[in-house]
Amino acid sequence: MLKNRSLIAPSDLTLEEIEELMRLSEKILQTPERYAAVCRGKLMASLFYEPSTRTKFSFDAAMLRLGGNTLGFSDPNTSSTAKGETIADSARTIGKYADLIVVRHPKEGTAKLMSRYAGIPVINAGDGGHHHPTQTLTDLLTIRHYKGSYSGLTVGVCGDLKFGRTIHSLVTCLARYENVRFLFISPEELTMPAFVKEELNAKGVSYTETTDLEGAISQLDVLYMSRVQRERFISEEEYLRLKDYFILTAEKMQLAKSDMIVMHPLPRINEIATDVDSDPRAAYFEQVRYGMFVRMALIMKLLGAEEPA
């Protein structure tokens, strides 16, 4: 049962609970209008101690489309933290008038701390470089929607694998399903960190590391792109030498399977050329829609909202 629970890390959810959320998300995305009043009278506090317009809009849109209301802030300077209130006290007070808290904060562990004191469900919308579980759920829904299931997929992740939290979460989550194979495509400076690989080794999950996107792309069912940032490189020359290898273009897409999908957490800079956007395999803008639907499903479940008859 997800009712009255908090979601702090992707690993808080069992595979059955993920499946429950995915099923409800699929139902909502087929007929969203049926769900327009299921959270009527409910109030969601969205507390963004660190600005992230994209994530805040997605959560607010989700709650409003369920017929609920939202309040909150997107700039910490307007909140009571400016007056020195502790996170624990903020959680206690907000828990007295809201039904659900969505929190983003630059410090790791903040959502967990709030969940201890709020007395109402808390959703972690990002705690520093730590967890961002609804991004992972968004990715899972996108893959499931296009591919039907996760088992047997070959998933390529490309770009900055060293610092990409989104990618670490997705990979460790997908590794819980049977027979998923990974290709890690990155410059040597930005390879997948040891803690992720150790987890895969322990589970007997197979993965290959390569620096060659063009050579790897034909094997993939899913290609998850991420940004390679200039500041990660020692020198400008190194960056310029390497960056094109990790940019997806229409030309490289010709080598890919006809049903491969391309994903990206957005915003992109230049790692996916705009000539890929019109390709039917480009799923990254659709991903944004799925992000809202999966948040609708999550809010419903945590609030224990009844499905419409």
Binding site: I87, P106, K107, E108, G109, L113, G128
Partner: peptide
């Protein structure tokens, strides 16, 4: 000891 941890800001 993680300086990015909330427990160091809130003194838990």
């Amino acid at each position: 000891r993680n300086p990015r941890c909330i427990t160091n800001q809130e003194h838990i």
